[in-house]
């Protein structure tokens, strides 16, 4: 009996990221309208849609880089009610679980690659310099850049910088990785090496939410795909289904435009 109860829990795992009725306004403009979303552990979710659809804003609301105006955001066991101003400790607890990768990499230009990855480990997880550097070198090896450890970021290509940024986020042991158009600032070839790292990461079971224009990634790597437009979720479901058989006319139009390129 007891065993059965356990199984039912395994059958329906709790979402690691959950948004309920999340809305955000810039002045009179509704960027996000009543967004509801659940992401299960191990899920890879691609968010696609035209620019200005609110997909990046949605991602940035999850780790409170941008405060939402209303709704509830839960990550793991941390819950934020957006109407209230969350206390610092709660934001810290929220962000502890989330790794973030930016479109423009945002590495620290005055530090070596190794220091970029080790700094936050020492400051926020209390790891020693030696411990942090060992973990950083390991991660650099994983993204194929062990030889860049003692270089400065400007000596690295855009694709390399983005892989370093991924390593920097992974070094803090996040439960969920957020990617904000990670390949949009890169030429196609350099984008590929970043996508390869992301594909490997997805294969390792990492939970990922990826705002992207890479339809190949959405279709072949991410389990679920969400299409957004004008601050709303148009479509959500298994990637292949959403991309091949969209239900709404607006989504069909967007996908046609993407495919015509």
């Amino acid at each position: 009996m007891h065993r059965q109860w356990n199984l039912s829990v395994i059958d329906s795992p709790r979402p690691v990221v959950k948004l309920e009725h999340v809305s955000k306004r810039y002045g009179a403009f509704d960027v996000l309208k009543d967004i509801n979303l659940s992401v299960l552990p191990g899920d890879v979710l691609a968010i696609i849609g035209p620019s200005g659809s609110g997909k990046s804003t949605l991602l940035r609301c999850i780790n409170w880089l941008e405060p939402a105006n209303s709704g509830i955001i839960s990550v793991g066991d941390v819950t934020i009610r957006c109407e209230e101003v969350p206390e610092k400790s709660r934001l810290t607890a929220l962000r502890r679980q989330l790794g973030m990768v930016f479109q423009s990499f945002n590495l620290f230009p005055h530090m070596t690659v190794l220091r970029n990855i080790s700094l936050a480990q020492e400051r926020t997880l209390g790891r020693s310099r030696k411990e942090a550097d060992a973990i950083s070198l390991n991660l650099l090896d994983r993204v194929g850049l062990a030889d860049k450890a003692y270089q400065y970021p400007v000596r690295c290509s855009g694709g390399q910088q983005q892989r370093i940024a991924i390593a920097r986020a992974l070094a803090l042991d996040p439960k969920v990785m957020l990617f904000d158009e990670p390949t949009s600032a890169l030429d196609p070839e350099l984008g590929l090496e970043v996508l390869a790292v992301m594909r490997e990461l997805a294969g390792s079971g990492m939970t990922m939410i990826v705002v992207t224009h890479e339809m190949g990634f959405a279709e072949n790597v991410s389990e679920h795909t969400m299409i957004m437009a004008e601050g709303e979720i148009l479509e959500y479901g298994p990637s292949r289904e959403v991309i091949r058989n969209p239900k709404t006319e607006r989504a069909r139009r967007f996908l046609r435009a993407v495919n015509d390129r």
Partner: peptide
């Protein structure tokens, strides 16, 4: 933003 996302 990077500093905030890294929880510094």
């Amino acid at each position: 933003e990077a500093a905030r996302a890294l929880n510094l």
